[in-house]
Simulated assay, not measured.
Amino acid sequence: MGDISHDFEAVTKAFSGFGVDEISLISTLGKWHHEERKSFRKGAPQFFTEDDRLFERWNDGHIAQLQIEFLRFKNAMVLWTMHPWERDARLLKEALTKGPESYRLLIEVACTRSSEELFGARRAYHSLFDHSMEEDVAYHINGPERKLFVALVSSYRYEGQRVNDATAKSEAKTLGAAIKNANKKKPIEDEEVVRILATRSKLHLKAIFRHYKEMCGKNIDEDLEADLILKDTVQCLCIPQTYFSKVLDASVEASADENAKEALTRVIVTRADVDMKEINEEHLSRYGYTLSDMLEDRANGNFKDFLHALVARGG
């Protein structure tokens, strides 16, 4: 009974978490006879329900979840081998069709890519969908965030070293006033806030946010807790490693929905060649364990091994 108990544990673990442990499933399930499979079904109520005709049937919800888990490795491989422009275009298109819970992906693409990368994603979007990215964003998004999102995806920021410190200080005051008066008018609806966040270079924005902290005593993202869209925008523009480490940790929480879980693949694939080392360091500092530790604890099989390999690229 000891061996079969160990097998049951192995299969239960292989079916749990992100991805599936293909090798464990093949080596264990392949040798089980009818009675062993029956015993497993009776002993795994998290997977099986006893039917009113007295047989153990798969829980429909878990079948649907397993289908997702078996696909995680395939989806990660497909995303990794895509041209980055196509990848961003397809990710953004999917986010628009899913609704508001996926709009933070739009912020990621618009704010963490270089001007050339974002321009390339817009070109790919044209080619793939016969629409412009801007027109689809404007069509699908009807809330107060529409102007900001259209402006962000339309942006082509200056990437040189020049920063006008006097202008940065003045715009820090503008942002401070908008946030202070949020009870009268939401900052996301303020045209000057949208202009500053959507057009200024990232170096200029860092200067603005430095002046903001000197004037207001807090980092600007700390003052934006009531407006998560602006908070995510600010972090993606200037401290993406903070934003991505938080998204990754949220993706493996027990309460995470499928939309949050998908971020595990998306973030690791899209940042592996960019700033994975910085994200990993931030994650370790913030949560006390590395991304590799997180994957070892929560992921399975080929999916886990592939993400491990991408995280390791960051050094």
Rank of each mutant, 00 (worst) to 15 (best):
M1L: 10
G2I: 08
G2Y: 10
I4R: 10
D21L: 05
T28I: 14
G30M: 08
T49A: 08
R53I: 09
I63T: 01
F70V: 12
L71S: 12
R72C: 01
F73A: 05
M77E: 04
H83W: 11
D88F: 03
A89T: 06
E94C: 08
L96Y: 02
K98P: 01
K98C: 05
P100A: 01
S102E: 08
R104A: 11
L106M: 12
R123F: 12
M133W: 05
M133N: 02
A138I: 06
H140E: 11
P144S: 13
S155N: 05
G160I: 03
Q161S: 13
N164K: 11
T174H: 03
L175H: 05
K185D: 07
D190M: 04
R200D: 01
S201T: 07
L205C: 02
K206R: 15
F209R: 02
A226D: 15
D227Q: 11
K231V: 04
T242Q: 09
F244T: 04
S251N: 06
D257C: 09
N259Y: 09
E262N: 11
A272Q: 09
D273H: 13
V274G: 02
K277L: 07
N280H: 07
S285K: 14
E296T: 12
F303Q: 00
F306E: 01
H308Q: 12
R313E: 04
